[in-house]
Design a protein around this nucleic acid. Structure first.
Lengths: 140, 140
DNA sequence: GCATATCGTAACTTATATTGTTTCAGTTGT
DNA sequence: ACAACTGAAACAATATAAGTTACGATATGC
């Protein structure tokens, strides 16, 4: 159950891209994702702060894309919905009296950064437009 | 607090590599990591199943490396302690009546696999021996 | 053989993060 | 004015990892 924000974000952006320029309500989107509308509004709130979507309250309101689907990369989206890092350091600080404990986090940092950069670089090869094409092109 | 298994695994293997071939007890290791010995035994149990370490019960027992530090890559270790995927799909199945909901998971799968492969490929460039050298080479 | 040190493991508690839910105020179009 | 939306706070439910306790099993050294 944990950590499906990224997947849901892609799902929602694909929906908005598919129905462009029609605004979609959080309730309708929640029906496709199979969750609660408030979950969708919370997620789209983050995406709005990042400039990807806009919202319109009131009758016949809803959510629309602002950015072009071809310009939204999965890597960029990942950074928005998951600002933390893939890897976590120790929950408690290790023992500073041990040479390994004292220096391990400094030693690991650079390797973690490089690995995460490789992940995001690979994700950057794909855009919402690509995913939408894959999804709608599937034969069922 | 969540998800520091990988970090702790690297930490522990560095300790074992540094003290080779002397066996270390889970209590001593826990002292460096700053956690409970059972947490260490649980983690090392997984690494033993993977053939990286061996254990010896009884007086003057403990844990020893089996694999060479130069042959343990961070990518391989990551697969051992984190068999799941970096990305999670929806917690509830999306609505199959929606064309996007019906196909989104199939469309995303390949992109997720490629991204995770890129992460692990980058991690594979580094071994426990490399990390240990970084850690012990640090000037403090 | 016996005492001791150590692992092996199960059961349980605690901590943390995410997801889901309820509720209601505010805003907008008709 | 009314109905349909978003915005947001507060809270509950769920999942996972981490930490703890307890005790049996095993091996060493005397």
């Amino acid at each position: 159950m944990v950590n499906c924000r990224f997947t849901v974000a892609i799902h929602v952006l694909c929906l908005l891209a598919a129905q462009q320029p029609q605004p979609l309500t959080s309730e309708l989107i929640a029906g496709s994702v199979n969750t609660n509308p408030v979950v969708i509004r919370r997620l789209l709130g983050w995406l709005r702060k990042a400039g990807l979507v806009k919202s319109q309250p009131g009758v016949s309101g809803g959510w629309e894309l602002v950015a072009k689907p071809e310009s939204i990369t999965l890597g960029g989206l990942y950074q928005i919905v998951r600002p933390g890092t893939v890897f976590a350091m120790h929950s408690q600080q290790p023992n500073v009296l041990c040479p390994v404990g004292r220096n391990i986090q400094r030693g690991l940092g650079i390797h973690y950064q490089k690995a995460q950069a490789a992940l995001e670089a690979e994700l950057d090869h794909t855009t919402i437009a690509d995913v939408l094409k894959d999804v709608l092109g599937t034969s069922s």
